[in-house]
Amino acid sequence: MTPEDLFREPELPHSGPRPRQDLDVLPQGSYFEPAEPAGYPYEETYSTYGGARYLEQHWAPAGQFGADAPTAPGQPGHYAPTGGAPHEDPPTIELGPPIDTPPVEVHFPYPQPEPGEGPGPLFVIGDVHGYLDELLAALHQQGLIDTEGHWSAGRSRVWFLGDFTDRGPDGIGVIDLVMQLAAEAAAAGGYCRALMGNHELLFLGASRYGDEAVQSTAGTASFLAAWRLNGGQQHDLERLQPHHISWLSRLPAMALEDGHLLLHSDTTAYLEYGETIADVNDAVHALLADEGIDEWWDAFRKFTKRFAFRGQAGTMAAQELLAVYGGYRVVHGHSPIPYLTGDQPEDGTPPHVPGPYIYADELAIAMDGGVTMDGRLLVARLPLN
């Protein structure tokens, strides 16, 4: 009996055919590959699996997810999928102060924690890229939401690792859901938080700077051109509201939870923005609030680099980040696991991504299951052993 027989993947909804997914590119078509890390031996030939492994035991056995599965809150069950023409470029939207929004109705009032009671379980969620139906199903399969899409996880702690929009059908719907769950989780004694990904920087840049020219290493470009090239959906830009911009622009770039250093991108570029997590987050927020288009573009480029923890130099890169910011393991999204491992089928068939991927001598966990390329939208409870 194979591992696939023991740990079958849940049957998640599918939002339709997906074009072949490439890595993020510059407007002139150059891939964002990592530059040679200073002080590290580096070679173009990467190891694939090495000492890493997939964690298939974190997926529900066959029969626990589908139309006949139980649907009580907190149990796996079936979540039914919910179901713009181009026009002239929209005007630039300036960043502004937070806008008051109506309070979210709380459907699950939980008791307050007892004195001395420890925190709830910790979950991380990989790149979503606008696939709202798949996200709803994955959250429900883990017992984090009920059949109506409301928080059902009590005092659990949830971190999204960034990249809510682009490529998929409903990026704004994803953002609205995460904002809703943040309010409901707080009322339940838990929390739902999110990191800023490179696609948040790109989306915000497209809304703010539009077609304003920026000088890049690939030639003259613009945020709007780069956003469209990397899967930007016009209907998301049309639905972007000031309260979305305010929320997105205040997301942290990194966090530390239970010894896990949470990042969006598998890059060491964070080191260029500060020597503490607070310094990095403050620097990114200050850049988005006050700096100009060239500084913003530079940040987007740096946080779009990838593969820093892969290959012979990967362990040292992970150790450097952990030594500076704390923790014992890096958890990131950004690089789809099939690209990270080199296990992308050449015949165009969907890649097999049964779970998160531990690598770099077990110092790094990759959480981008490649939902945009018919892989998986990954939700995992930490720690992974």
Rank of each mutant, 00 (worst) to 15 (best):
L237R: 12
P17E: 14
H129W: 10
H58E: 05
A380L: 07
A188V: 11
P354N: 04
R329H: 00
Y79F: 14
G171N: 02
T315S: 11
D5Q: 14
F108P: 06
R381L: 08
G39S: 07
S30M: 05
I99N: 10
F203Y: 04
A85L: 15
L201V: 13
E295C: 14
L263P: 09
G197M: 09
E94S: 08
I99A: 14
N230I: 11
I337P: 07
P61K: 08
T276F: 00
L382R: 14
G143P: 07
Y42E: 07
A323Q: 15
P73Y: 06
P119S: 03
E257R: 13
M316K: 14
L378C: 00
A35W: 14
A289L: 01
S246M: 09
G66S: 05
F160C: 05
P354L: 09
S15F: 08
Y40V: 02
P27W: 07
P13I: 10
G118M: 12
F223N: 06
Y131R: 05
F300D: 08
E295Q: 15
D343R: 14
H58R: 11
N385H: 09
G96E: 13
G314S: 14
P97W: 09
M367A: 11
D22M: 00
Y273H: 00
G120D: 07
G375Y: 02
A35Y: 13
P169A: 10
A269K: 04
E117S: 12
L177S: 09
E295A: 15
Q215R: 06
I337K: 01
P113H: 04
D298V: 06
P34N: 06
Y325F: 10
L55R: 02
L251Q: 05
D5T: 10
W59G: 00
L144H: 14
P338R: 06
Y46T: 03
H244S: 07
D279H: 05
L122A: 10
H199R: 03
A38W: 05
L12G: 01
F164E: 08
L195T: 02
D127R: 01
W247D: 02
A308E: 05
V178A: 11
Q233W: 04
E275V: 04
P13H: 12
Q319I: 04
G116R: 13
G348C: 11
G168F: 11
Y79E: 03
E94T: 09
I293Y: 11
P119D: 12
T165Q: 04
G168V: 13
P242Y: 12
V379S: 00
T147E: 15
P109E: 09
G168W: 08
T304F: 06
L12V: 13
E362Q: 14
P119T: 04
S216E: 06
P102D: 11
A269Q: 05
G143D: 13
G66V: 08
D279G: 11
P351A: 01
L377K: 09
H352E: 08
D279Q: 15
G348S: 08
A253H: 07
A60T: 11
G83C: 12
A360N: 00
R306C: 13
D298I: 03
